[in-house]
């Protein structure tokens, strides 16, 4: 049993070491180089490389001799690093925060929901629950609704036409683009979120702007929806 475990862990270590070498050497590194730099037997290295290619952690480049990090590795890397947003998007967020006294957060939607820019003065404390339990926040509800709303907009293509900025109120009335939640993040906190749509494909939600504040002042949160709405239109091209 113990021997089996140690073998398993050394196989995992070897696989990670191979990924590290490919990451360090850059695309095009050959099997021979990888085997040499890890002092592995060529046969073992080739076996490991083929297995990492089969699981998409590595790819073989078109010349068939060079390797590069594949989707699997890239997804792993992006899952642990905070998503980068551009300076223009950060400026929009700063402007909103100077105008609104509640917590203003930007959330992006990929294969998972991620907190791209949290309000430094009113931060979301339990980020793990926020990401793992989408039903606890307004943004999470929009994330869960994403596929459903995509279907709806496909069924009603006329409504999905790109909207001019002054049509913000029309968007507000569309189902699935505004969500509200009470007491999920913390017992005394409510949230309101507005969907940020893809700038060209309006049936795709790329993220959400979320406002958090005390539940006792939930009515006041609502009054900021038009402000958030116009901000999402400015954020669209920056996140798409």
């Amino acid at each position: 049993m113990a021997a089996g475990d140690s073998n398993a862990s050394s196989a995992a270590e070897r696989a990670i070491a191979v990924l590290e070498v490919v990451g360090r050497e850059g695309p095009g590194v050959t099997a021979k180089t990888i085997a040499a730099s890890l002092a592995m037997s060529p046969a073992a290295a080739y076996r490991l490389l083929n297995s990492l290619v089969a699981t998409a952690y590595l790819v073989r480049l078109p010349d068939l001799s060079g390797f590069a990090l594949g989707r699997g590795s890239v997804e792993l890397a992006t899952a642990i690093s905070p998503p980068l947003i551009c300076a223009a998007a950060r400026r929009i967020m700063d402007d909103l925060r100077s105008e609104i006294r509640f917590g203003v957060h930007l959330v992006t939607f990929g294969s998972a929901m991620r907190l791209a820019d949290t309000d430094p003065d009113n931060p979301i404390r339990d980020i793990v629950s926020f990401v793992r339990q989408p039903t606890t926040s307004a943004a999470g509800k929009l994330f869960l609704n994403r596929e459903q709303s995509a279907k709806r907009t496909t069924q009603a293509p006329l409504r999905a036409e790109p909207q001019p900025p002054n049509a913000a109120t029309t968007i507000t009335n569309q189902p699935g683009q505004v969500a509200r939640e009470q007491g999920g993040l913390r017992p005394d906190i409510s949230s309101v979120a507005i969907a940020v749509l893809h700038s060209e494909r309006q049936n795709v939600t790329v993220g959400a702007l979320m406002l958090t504040g005390p539940t006792t002042r939930a009515q006041l949160l609502e009054t900021f929806i038009p402000t958030l709405q116009s901000a999402t239109l400015r954020l669209q091209p920056l996140l798409s």
Binding site: V29, K32, L61, P62, D63, G66
Partner: peptide, 12 residues
């Protein structure tokens, strides 16, 4: 050490 290709040469 060989650095044969760059990923920019990939097909889209």
């Amino acid at each position: 050490m060989t650095r044969a290709t760059q990923t920019s040469g990939l097909r889209s």
